[in-house]
Amino acid sequence: MVDRALPKRCEACARPSSRCLCSTIPRLHSSTRMLIIQHPSERHHALNTARFLAAGLVNAELHVVEHIAPGSALYSQLADPARRTEVLFPGPGASSLARAADPREHQLVLLDGTWRKARKLLHLNPILAVLPQVALAAGLASRYRLRKAPAPGALSTIEAGVAALEVLEPDKSFQALLRPFDRLIEEQIASIGTELYRRNYLKPGSADSGSDR
């Protein structure tokens, strides 16, 4: 049996060292505190955009957990009345995400996982379920060109985080956070080949298809 060593991975971005994306990750400041709660099944997903978001935003934390134990540091942080905490999730009673005249620090929770796993996180954790839910404006389109969106307006975690921050802090730009995401998409397109990508993923007349605009 041949012993094949696994490729070394960058500890920061979790990518293979030969394809490290750390050079594309900025360090941006925001007034909004972002808590990213990642379902454990997403930890080793190839498109782990939650890690990129947490690495690029100074005022952000990534927690990989399914059950948030009462008394834990994360539980206390979510329940802290000194912060105005909301969950970015388009539930039936969600209000539109907007700036608010509230002197408390705004803490925005992002749930990283499939829609089913995100709903499971809410169901398993009453501390999340009781928090106000907010949603982004309808009609936003994902930049991830290699996947059909599971629902209209479905965005990756990093795209949702950037869109939310630019609503809450319109005087700043957070587009630089998307650089590692864009690079990852470019790498995936290169790996399948440009012609195959155009044939299987592009709609006629789209900007990347080579057709007239």
Rank of each mutant, 00 (worst) to 15 (best):
V2M: 10
D3W: 11
A5C: 00
A5Y: 01
A5I: 04
P7K: 12
K8I: 11
C10G: 03
R15N: 10
S17I: 15
R19Y: 02
R19S: 13
L21H: 01
T24C: 03
I25L: 13
P26L: 07
H29S: 12
S30M: 06
S31C: 11
Q38H: 05
H39V: 04
H39D: 14
P40R: 09
S41E: 07
H45Y: 08
H45D: 06
L47I: 00
N48A: 13
A55D: 06
A55W: 02
G56F: 05
V58F: 08
L62G: 01
L62A: 03
H67N: 09
H67L: 08
P70R: 00
P70D: 00
P70H: 04
G71I: 09
S72A: 10
A73Q: 12
L74P: 08
L74Q: 04
Y75R: 06
D80N: 15
D80C: 15
D80Q: 13
R84E: 13
V87F: 08
V87N: 05
F89K: 01
P90R: 04
G93R: 13
S96Y: 13
A101M: 03
R104F: 12
E105R: 12
H106D: 00
Q107K: 03
L110R: 00
L111M: 09
D112I: 07
D112F: 05
D112H: 12
W115K: 10
W115L: 12
A118T: 11
K120A: 07
N125A: 03
P126R: 13
I127F: 00
L128V: 11
L128I: 11
L131P: 07
L131S: 03
L131Y: 10
L131F: 08
P132A: 08
Q133P: 02
Q133V: 00
Q133I: 02
V134E: 02
A137E: 15
L140R: 14
R143F: 10
Y144Q: 00
R147E: 04
P152D: 00
L155E: 01
A164W: 04
L165W: 05
E166Y: 10
E166H: 05
E166A: 06
P170G: 09
D171W: 10
K172I: 03
K172H: 14
K172R: 15
K172S: 11
S173N: 01
L178S: 00
P180D: 02
F181K: 01
I185L: 14
E187S: 09
T194C: 06
Y197A: 05
R199N: 14
R199E: 15
Y201D: 05
K203H: 10
P204M: 07
S209K: 08
S209V: 12
S209T: 10
S211W: 13
